[in-house]
Design a binder for these strands. Structure first.
Lengths: 242, 242
DNA sequence: TGTCAACTGTCAGTGACTGACATAGCCTCA
DNA sequence: TGAGGCTATGTCAGTCACTGACAGTTGACA
């Protein structure tokens, strides 16, 4: 009667472990969101799941790690999708399309992998908690390295001799982080808003790097038909230097 | 006889405090470099200067903060130089030139502000110590926000409506970090090598973002006159999307 | 069913960091 | 110059994240 349709290949021990892990994540995230990350102690989380503190640390090396579960899943998905992108796509396009696939996946709420509603709250939690943000940025650097290696592979260039793989990757994540900062200061966390912001930021990359910033481009919303710019002259200096 | 040429405007108390602070930094950095950051305890540093642990934490809020002194000075200098750049320079050019000024300043070793030799070792220490790297990346984000605000001001755009200030800033620091990663894996830390790497990375920004990566550009060193690329055709897709 | 291996709890300890309180020393002003 | 005030410091106790060691419990499997 209670036997799930998906046959439990694993033994009782494995299932118990999996259960404990999920309980810890659930209780931890809930407490983090309720009372804040710093204000939540590991003892509290362990007590909520009725395990010892020692057991908590057998599941998660650090308190931070508990918060990154969903993020890690999304990042892995991104990496796998990137590896799957057809080779005729340019590096930046491949990165962009891989990100879109992740966002599509997240849109299927309560999917097997990532719960989008909670996920968005966790992203905000990370972004607004200094120690979590610090840990996340460092983790992101590690992902960047893997991504750069994959780009080098697909483009057939040498990662140790060619600067471009690391550069596109760094620029891409920089744009995403900039988008994230804007998204983080918005009212209600919304996946659509996040996706749109990332797309807009990627679109604005070239305009932002251009020597001359006409007052036209770069607007977050369509400007209400403002007056024509007064200084149509292009900038004297160029981006590339002597 | 011992009265320094620079008249001590401050009282004995102030001087003592300054002295203790300098001693803590010196002992701390030395110990970090000798035995590693994680392996060095606050008690050790405090003992080396003959103060209590409690006093240490009255000078530095965290153990990490001790390591960031020189970095903060350099960052402040960068920000001030950026504010000083003439308005006709494009944003990216202003950022680049401001960075050059900082590097020039660092070249004057044993200057009043930053000791370049030790400074380079500290940068490596930070880059190679996970917890320090994490803290540094988060601090860098805060600087980014200030820089973006300054760029918005000088260009006369609205930071909350225009994505470009944050974007250029993010891209610039992304390029610097990419350069730093390469620099960090080099043999002997050298200021010249660091400056050159940053310049090269900034030069490679546009090529890296280009849709098509010809096998020519992007090389770290001049390629030894390799064979002409076999696929001169440009990429089908473009960077900008529908 | 008994043995082994994996999972867990308990305990003691380290190290970063904080608040409270008392003391010692510079500093100021009469 | 000396009294009083303010500031820097030391001591102490405590919290919290995290770890190693050891022992007990329980699923796995022959």
């Amino acid at each position: 009667m209670e036997a799930p349709a998906t046959a439990p290949r694993t033994g009782l021990r494995q299932r118990k472990k999996q259960r404990t892990r999920e309980d810890l994540v659930e209780a931890g995230i809930r407490l983090f969101l309720e009372q804040g990350y710093e204000q939540t102690t590991v003892d509290q989380i362990a007590a909520a799941v009725e395990v010892s503190q020692r057991t908590f640390f057998r599941y998660f090396a650090t308190k931070e790690d508990l918060a990154f579960g969903a993020v890690i899943v999304a990042e892995e998905l991104f990496y796998e999708e990137l590896c799957r992108r057809p080779p005729q796509e340019s590096p930046l396009t491949a990165l962009r399309r891989a990100a879109r696939v992740v966002h599509e996946e997240m849109r299927n709420t309560t999917s097997t992998t990532v719960d989008s509603g909670l996920h968005l709250s966790v992203v905000r939690l990370i972004e607004s908690t200094p120690s979590l943000l610090a840990a996340h940025l460092r983790r992101a650097e590690e992902l960047e390295e893997r991504v750069a290696a994959e780009l080098a592979r697909r483009e057939g260039v040498d990662l140790s001799a060619d600067l471009r793989p690391r550069l596109v990757t760094a620029v891409f994540t920089a744009a995403c982080r900039a988008a994230n900062r804007v998204w983080n200061s918005e009212g209600v966390p919304s996946l659509d808003a996040m996706v749109q912001l990332i797309e807009r930021h990627l679109d604005q990359l070239q305009p932002a790097l251009a020597g001359d910033w006409g007052r036209r481009a770069g607007a977050l919303e369509e400007p209400p038909a403002s007056s024509a710019p007064g200084t149509p002259a292009t900038r004297a200096d160029t981006t590339s230097e002597e």
